[in-house]
């Protein structure tokens, strides 16, 4: 069992390494992509400068805290896209029958299918996230917690993308729905939860899990709370398991009915 995990890890590590090597083949565009993404995120802060000139508390957060919120939104997005970029292209992989190559390998089909590409601009997001940590006020505790939530949040975003991508097993033209669904997370993650109310807030903590990926972690970053910390950890595990389960069900359907491969 342990050996199998180790072997799988070796594979995944190699796949990600090769993905990075590919992105770095063209050094100029690798660095431009990263730089522009950092500038891109920074430019969105102009909006908040204007808004905070009108009011010094938005959704219960100060300007500094909003910068940290942006930082976390960027780093979770960055983490998920940097290493698991192909989870956002999963519907395409399924529809074009590219999954077959992974099915015949003696490794985890899902994990191999989501680690075939690396996005260079996503490293810009990651860097931007940590820049915000320094602006907010660096401490080892904050740095550690921020890293921890970057990973949990990133994995939740990946899990959400896997669930949306797996729709391709069950319906036609799910690709655009998946794209739009993945956009939802980005849009909500860059605004404070305090401005939302009632039903929407409920959705943001359940079906569209921005609350667990970003909002609660932000609260923990500002004011550490062990209960909330554990809630985030367990819900992350829950979402990952749910994504794996849905993918597994889809894969089973793919193998038994095989609606797609008939579209030769």
């Amino acid at each position: 069992m342990l050996m199998a995990v180790k072997n799988q890890a070796r594979c995944t590590f190699l796949a990600i390494k090769y993905g990075i090597v590919k992105e770095m083949l063209n050094r100029v565009s690798f660095i431009t992509n990263i730089t522009f993404m950092i500038l891109n995120n920074a430019s969105m802060l102009i909006q908040w400068i204007v808004l905070y000139s009108l009011k010094d508390n938005i959704g219960g957060y100060t300007f500094k805290e909003i910068m940290l919120l942006w930082g976390l939104a960027a780093s979770t997005y960055g983490f998920s896209h940097a290493f698991f970029y192909s989870s956002f292209k999963l519907s395409d992989t399924i529809n074009k029958g590219k999954l077959d190559a992974f099915i015949v390998q003696p490794k985890n089909v899902l994990l191999n299918a989501i680690t075939t590409h690396v996005s260079s601009s996503a490293f810009g997001d990651l860097i931007f996230g940590y820049l915000m940590v320094f602006i907010y006020g660096f401490s080892f505790k904050l740095f550690f917690l921020f890293t921890f939530f970057t990973i949990t949040g990133g994995l939740i975003i990946v899990a959400f993308a896997i669930i949306l991508g797996s729709l391709a097993f069950f319906m036609d033209s799910s690709e655009l729905i998946a794209d739009n669904g993945n956009n939802l997370i980005v849009h909500f993650a860059t605004y404070p939860d305090g401005i939302f109310k009632g039903f929407v807030k409920l959705i943001l903590f359940t079906i569209v899990p921005v609350g667990i990926a970003n909002y609660i972690p932000l609260q923990v970053l500002i004011n550490f709370d062990i209960v909330k910390f554990l809630i985030v950890l367990s819900l992350t595990i829950f979402f990952i398991s749910l994504a794996c389960l849905i993918f597994k069900l889809g894969l089973k359907k793919y193998s038994s009915t095989n609606l797609m491969s008939a579209r030769i």
Binding site: L51, L54, K55, I58, G59, L176, I177, N180, G181, N183, L184, H187, F188, Y191, G194, I195, F196, K197, V200
Partner: peptide, 20 residues
């Protein structure tokens, strides 16, 4: 299908401005 994203943006801005 792209309307989904558009609706969400408008919705977020509505909430934001209502708060401000």
């Amino acid at each position: 299908i792209g309307f989904i994203t558009y609706f969400v943006i408008i919705f977020i801005f509505t909430n934001l401005w209502e708060y401000i």
